[in-house]
Nucleic acid binder design. Structure first.
Lengths: 209, 209, 209, 209
DNA sequence: GATGAATGAGCCTTCATTCAT
DNA sequence: AATGAATGAAGGCTCATTCAT
């Protein structure tokens, strides 16, 4: 089986296996033997490609963060550059992307938050992630609100996103994306001056409530 | 010389030591040797009193949940039974009680969330906790809002509480209780009919913005 | 089996087992499982008492060095304080003590020399050991020879001791203590002024040749 | 394109890399990956050329022994066939050849002694080496001393060579070739009948003391 | 001839737990 | 009630070696 370009195949394969293992038994019990078992390869290969278990976990978190970032970016790219409300919806939607609210990923997130509290490398990743969400929101809100108010609203929306996400993690039905959008849009509607919303959006928002 | 009431001494002592250990190195590395070291006793005693490490961890979570519940209940008890807004402030305040936003407890919470995903006993505890917050809020909101709207707002407030709490966990400055109250009260103000607020509260809310 | 004072029993027991294992298969293949097997205990106990394999190896070397030092000291203690020749014989004798020329110890010495080249802690032990031999010899020789000559002779005797010891390590018959004494005493005789030797010693030395 | 004479290139290259690795981290930690890294080739090639790590180590020892033998032989070849003292100086000189007292080679020697105790193939090499030194010395000494005395002196000189060499290995200043020659020549001078030495040599020996 | 890829055996170490005292 | 002592199972990791290319 020795072929070139194996790293490009093995790395995602092992990251998927890591998420699978965390999903199955939790981070504490996700041993390298189990992870490599899910990937159908030898445990030694984890060291070969990631320098150890820690490296694999960090790469796994990076991978999830990358996907989150892409989910947001893709939605933003297909938005009107000047439609603030549409763009906020896009940001929220990206954070509740199908992949991100999948039970496997949710469990992995929680595991990483726990680890991040004690591993500077992971903590930094988490911080960057938080700041990115905030700056995305702020960028839009500043166009329709004064600076301090924009910051206040951005913080609130970010909190709503994380809070709904977190509570959904412990709900038997999982995370409810539509409810999330309704709650957040309702909040936005009440914070922005009415004229900001065009007729179409006003109707949409009314419908959601 | 068998001492009476030893359990009442040892149990809190070991629970504190557990939180201390999780604070210091994280749940993954908090071994029973380390925990018993913090408590200044022998590791064997953990089995004696809690039947094993899992038992200790569950009791530790129970202890934190109990304190959270008490923090809310105490504030509610010193409120006017009919002042809905004051009572919501009390509920929010309890969730941001000094103890609960202490870094040690925050780390422990995150650790438990991670574990709860894979341990039914802990998962149940977490569910009960979530439902209690929601029912506390709902109980009040139903008195000033129609049922479905009350539920919607209760969910939102709960999400804001958890979201602000969670984001604060990763902030270098820790969790900001005042900001939390401001954000949530601003939200409440915009959701409830104006006449619900008495003159005093209206002034307070205006000040906060 | 839990009794107090176990460390005093376990430590020598494990050190003996280490020497036994090195004797049997060499340092490279002397795993903690094998060593603990020789001692009839669990591998985990090595960490418990020595903090790891390295700690055990260092303690083992210390133990052998201590025994060498004692072998020399005991012989010196039963010597006339002023009989230089007798005291040199004692020093040489201690270095060729039955225990030190035992095949097991010889193999362990060689293993340690090899390790000492790359482990500062062991290197230091070896240095101290070398210097002690030299200073023992020097102390005596200075009483019958000028300082620079004394140093020259001390170095030579030390080299003869080590050289004979080393070559004996690779001899099928092992190390020959008597030959060592004969070679070294012959050397001493030719380096010290005749009048230093009393009649008795002169006869002895003649006999040896 | 099969290249001819590759073995002749690769083998010394890998042997040098082995010595380099032993010098850097010691035999225990000198893995085939590290060795092949020093040589700038793939680890698999070690198996190709030496049949495994053991084969490489044995060849490395053989190489060092060969160089030692050559260092002695070259010096002997440029000696007067009948000048016993000069030839002994040559033998000693060869054993303290620049290459042999280089730190890298010294570490490798010690590593091999340790291994030789448990690997018959290496033990045999070491024995041959010892015997060769002894027979070289004996061959010369028999021409000026009676057989038993010659053997006695040969053993002593061999011991001095090895002893000085060994002690130098642990000295921060390394092995002192001149001191070695002085000590050994002083010894020889006192063991051989005065008339053996010609005027020139007598002067040299006097100077050395 | 040479290599990138992969492996399985084995190593050191950690740890929750048990047990006699 | 409490502990010092000990353990077995498991964990992460290293490494010499193999193999298809």
């Amino acid at each position: 089986m020795p072929k070139v370009g194996m790293p490009a195949i093995r790395k995602p394969q092992l990251i998927d296996a890591t998420i699978e293992a965390i999903n199955a038994v939790g981070l504490q019990k996700a041993s390298v033997v189990m992870i490599s078992g899910y990937a159908g390869v030898s445990p030694a290969i984890i060291n070969h490609y990631f320098g150890g278990k820690d490296g694999l976990l960090e790469e796994t978190m990076r991978s999830i963060l990358r996907q989150l970032s892409q989910a947001v970016q893709q939605r933003l790219n297909s938005c009107d550059k000047d439609d603030v409300i549409e763009r906020i919806i896009a940001i929220v939607g990206g954070n509740f992307d199908s992949q991100q609210i999948d039970s496997k990923i949710v469990k992995t997130w929680l595991a990483f938050w726990s680890m991040a509290m004690h591993q500077p490398a992971l903590f930094r990743l988490q911080r960057v992630n938080e700041k990115r969400l905030l700056s995305h929101l702020l960028l839009e809100l500043k166009r329709i609100l004064p600076a301090d108010k924009a910051k206040f609203v951005a913080l609130s929306i970010a909190a709503l996103i994380d809070g709904i996400w977190l509570r959904g993690a412990f709900s038997p039905n999982g995370i409810d994306r539509d409810l999330a959008q309704r709650i957040i849009m309702d909040y936005v509607e009440k914070q922005v001056p009415p004229q900001t919303l065009d007729i179409h959006q006003q109707r949409q928002l009314l419908k959601k409530n």
